[in-house]
Write a protein that binds this DNA or RNA. Sequence first.
DNA 1: CTAGGGTTAG
Length: 675
Amino acid sequence: MASTSTSSALSPLYESKFFFSTFTFPRKFTFPLKLLKSSIQTPKVLQPQVSRKTVSSSKSKLWVNPKSPRASELKRKSYDFRYASLVKVAQSLDSCNAVQEDVFNVLANLGDKLVEQDVVVTLNNMSNPETALLAMEYFQQRLKFSKEVIVYNVILKVVRKNKDFGKAEKVFDEMIERGVKPDNVTFSTIISCARQCNLPEKAIEWFEKLPSFECEPDDVTYSVMIDCYGKAGNVDMALSLYDRARTEKWRIDAVTFATLIRIYGTAGNFDGCLNVYEEMKVLGVKPNMTVYNSLLDAMGRARRPWQAKNIYAEMLSNGFQPSWGTYASLVRAYGRARYSEDALKIYKEMKEKGLELSVVLYNTLLAMCADVGLMDEAFNIFEEMKASGCQPDSWTYSSLITIYSCSGKVSEVESTLNEMMEAGFDPNIFVLTSLIQCYGKAGRIDDVVRTFDRLSDLGLSADERFTGCLLNVLTQTAKEDLHKLTICLERANPKLGYVVKLLLDEEVVEEEGVFKKHAAELLDSVTTDVRKAYCNCLIDICVNLNQLERACELLDVGLTLNIYKDIMSRNATQWSLHLKSLSLGAALTALHIWMNDLNKALESGEEFPSLLGINTGHGKHKYSEKGLAGVFESHLKELNAPFHEAPDHAGWFLTTKVAATSWLESRRAQEVVAS
DNA sequence: CTAGGGTTAG
């Protein structure tokens, strides 16, 4: 009843392409009750307003001026109504059996007077390609399309939603068979389908087909293709398309620029990202959210949190509200760069806005906490994560275990490990690495060995980091327990095992230079990112075993292989020793060598500069109770050395030419007396 | 929302 009075009241709008007077409630209503209810509610709201207005009109009871605001409102409302109904039909079709009879039955509810727009709207709202193809048959039997290509294009969209590229190609073939000529939209839809199916080479193949169907790529085709070439790793091709689009004067809009920024970001060309951004502004294109989010993401990858911060500020000042993606990029940018305060602030803001974090974001935060040693924060985030219903994964547990391990919290590590295994995750290499570290710190060597054995039980093999942690345990282990660990070490990396064996086995007598040769070979064989750690550990072991000569040999190897760079420097006013990133043993060894050099200089009558300095770095690493600076301060005192920490330069120990000279001379005098 | 491009990552 509502529907009849509505139609008659609106009948003057009948001709409008937006108005569908043919739509009445289906007689054989087969939709689920839920859909039926909401369909009925719409006209209820519409109907009384319309009749009141038309009745009160003095000139005509039925006619509303189609150009008046009132009319356009009615148009919109009636269209909304029709649109909502078509969406319901689309939903019914999605869940209906993919057999012709069922599909046709659902469609019969649309009535006989179908227009092309109905077809497009219905299909466009579908996600089931099987029933969509059957629905298309229904429409093809009943309608003569003025632009059949549009119907195929919409079907291609449905196919794309299902990421079924093979089916997209089939639909295309069918289209050609029926004599329907494809257009740019057809191609850009197929191409983007290939892209979403991770088939960038297919996308390129289809892009190259365009001319043979008398199609010329336009701005959208270029945009999709730029993205495809970027995804296929063909950055040059992507950029040359961009150039072509530019010279052919295609309108290049913000989305395309965002795509370019993403391509540069993925390729690691971060200045390229910023250049594109500048170029875009020069061309007068206003950045949108996509552009900002791509830029923020790129700056995160680039580890340039300060630039992310600036871009974010600009985004806010241009009146944009951060989206989920914005926050995600910021968490990543700040988290990876260890800007923990900024990252936690973003986290807080997300919570306040009720935005849900994904497991990846939680893991980013937890990994950051692990990096900077925020144990309590990590615990809280982990609890909040679980409370929010986000399921922790192996990364989550791995970060937590790392945090507890670095602080030597054995019982927390073990309970987290249990929780992890109860959740169905076997320990992975990261977890085992942390366990080794934790047990090593706690002096539980048998547990270290047991953990090492678990590696092969779980079908894993030691990687360089794992082996490095094992080596690090040796630097903290009493001499009598070392043999237990060298067995593991030999199994993990025979070359390394042999070098350590040479250090421990006092009975091995070897020729001059043999140790150095093996050490150099070993360090050369591992990747650059663990070289320094290995070398530091080996020197520490030497120092612990009081093998200062070997320590010097190793430091020398480290200098030759460029593992340690610019440790000693001299300029007109200051000679310096730079110990940042050296382990304590390596730093002490370097100091020893430096002092020898100073002695030699003194002996040869070389003039000292006015200042001599040792830079330990103020790196108060969160996990070591005393940084290198603290340990060095007491060591220098023991040596009676006149170096004192500079009050305005944390981590710098300085002395004057006069003090240094007299100190070195007095040491030499003592040595003479002693011998 | 009305035939085509981006957006959720380690």
